[in-house]
Design a protein around this nucleic acid. Structure first.
Lengths: 143, 143
DNA sequence: ATCACTTGCATAGCATGCTATTCAACAGGA
DNA sequence: TCCTGTTGAATAGCATGCTATGCAAGTGAT
């Protein structure tokens, strides 16, 4: 049996993710924001002042990846970083005014992208997609 | 209503795709192969001698992305590239012996990764995931 | 106190992906 | 033929992501 891209969950996940990211990137450009930066903001809007390690854990990316993303966010004026008083190895990441102000428009952009992507699905299909994807993610994180 | 990563199809797609790619990369390392190279091989095993433009279209990536991937594949001895006799702008991409020989083991690696990822799902859930993902992809490609 | 281990970050090097630009080769019409 | 517009590739520059290292700052046991 030939291996078929079209029926491979891994290939479809990759393709779907690329299209999502491209669409989100386009919607975030006017805000001066990139997709990975938006993910970090999603966390900081709820819990400001987290460390790099905290952020990497919550978004399940490697520490080195987060280090680079945070450096770009600092460069772009979205966050400031200050050495922790208790543990001088750690740096606390805080939202700037600009970073805080983007919550409304950036969230709308992301919601619009999700809506556009899921436009052809029924409510049941949307729920199924989310539930099944969450299961697959859980399986792979354990394995 | 707060925007929730956990219930965002875009976020889940990204997370799922990263985990798939990481797992596949690990399984392909012993073969000296990277995930994007495997995708190109999947196409060439069926249709050898395609141009860069052909490959980019079939995998839905930009021409520049494909140019870089093909350069790495040539460097790694997976393909050779020759100028097309009819159209001297175009270059035909041909599998090497090594590229051809990897079909079996690489396909097995990818199948194993898919199986591991979907291990927690029922047959119906697997079918649903693939069908719904394909629909979402179709929607985004049009939009 | 000292030494070994752990932990938080930074950096190097690489693969993928994108947009934008450039160049050479082709194709079609004036 | 010549000029224009299109098309196939290459390249530059950047964002994300990964692994592997290295360093400084904690921690704990002796």
């Amino acid at each position: 049996m030939p291996f078929s891209r079209e029926a491979s969950a891994g290939y479809l996940a990759n393709h779907m993710a690329r299209l999502f990211e491209k669409g989100l990137a386009r919607r975030l450009v006017p805000l001066g924001l990139a997709p990975a930066q938006f993910m970090v903001l999603l966390v900081l809007w709820r819990e400001d002042g987290l460390t790099q390690r905290d952020l990497a854990e919550r978004l399940d990316v490697e520490q080195a990846t987060m280090a680079n993303t945070l450096a770009r966010m600092e460069r772009d004026g979205l966050i400031t970083r200050s050495v922790d008083a208790e543990d001088r190895r750690a740096r606390r990441n805080h939202l700037t005014e600009r970073g805080r102000a983007l919550e409304g428009p950036a969230t709308e952009a992301a919601a619009a992208q999700n809506a556009a992507a899921l436009a052809g699905l029924t409510e049941a299909e949307r729920a199924a997609l989310i539930a099944i994807a969450a299961k697959v993610i859980a399986t792979m994180r354990r394995g």
